[in-house]
Simulated scan of single mutants.
Amino acid sequence: MTDEEAAPAGVVHNAFALVRVLSRAQRPVGVTELASVVGLPKTTAHRLLEQMAREGIVTRRDHQWALAPGFGDLARTAHRPSPLALVARPRLHALSQATGATLLLHRESGDALETLWCAFGPHFRRVMPPAEQRRAAVHPASAIWLALASGQMAAEYQEVHPGCNCIAAPVSLPSGGTGVVTLVRPDNLEVESLKRPLERVASRILSDIRRFAD
């Protein structure tokens, strides 16, 4: 494995390259073919696929790989991640790693929500698979919609799923519209103490996107 592949940016680039190939494929694809198309060593491609499988991004069956159900929305953005997703993902990933929670980023799009980024926490994956987490996030009773309606931090406790609690902080975007940063934890792990950290992350993402726009 080269130094470039070992760098975080290289890992993200290679992972998205694999997702792009799988999103265009009409059938499951073997790791040898994926590695050849993307231009990676087979061992590197296999390691990345295994990591993405643990995150619920891809699935494997009979030594063939495919995108996991429910991942199509993110796959469509894999070609050109939005500036908001690009600046937000390091902060979301850091908070997810620090708390074990799932962190999500959505943007309001008319009457719907556009999923921009997900960082699935190890604690929460044991309660709800990643694909189900994505679906639950946009449920009408989710904290995301509550935050959008109120314009401030919102919380929901086991309303969408009996095994989890959720808090969400809205972000008014410089380009117009609203983004929402969401944190989800199993119901045996409280979220109240994470409201301030989540608000700080939302504020820093807003500062980052403003600098990006400049």
Rank of each mutant, 00 (worst) to 15 (best):
M1G: 14
E4P: 00
A6Y: 02
V12T: 11
H13T: 11
A17C: 06
V19D: 07
S23L: 02
A25K: 12
P28F: 00
P28A: 00
V29A: 08
T32L: 14
E33N: 07
V38T: 08
G39R: 09
A45W: 06
L48S: 04
E50W: 03
R54Q: 12
G56M: 04
G56R: 09
I57M: 15
V58G: 06
H63S: 13
Q64F: 09
A68E: 01
P69S: 03
G70E: 01
D73R: 06
L84E: 11
A85I: 06
P90K: 10
L92E: 01
H93Q: 13
S96W: 03
G100Y: 06
G100H: 07
A101W: 01
A101Y: 07
T102M: 13
L105D: 05
E108Q: 15
A112Q: 15
A112R: 14
L113F: 07
L113C: 09
L116V: 03
A119W: 05
V127C: 13
M128K: 11
P129V: 00
Q133I: 00
A136F: 03
A136I: 00
P140V: 04
P140Q: 13
P140E: 10
A141I: 01
I144A: 13
L146H: 15
A149D: 15
M153F: 01
E156W: 05
Y157S: 09
H161D: 14
C164K: 05
C164A: 14
C166L: 09
A168Q: 02
A168D: 04
S172Y: 02
V181C: 11
V181R: 04
L183M: 15
R185M: 15
E190G: 12
K195G: 09
R196I: 07
P197F: 04
V201L: 09
V201H: 04
A202F: 07
A202W: 02
I205E: 06
R211P: 02
R211F: 07
D214A: 08
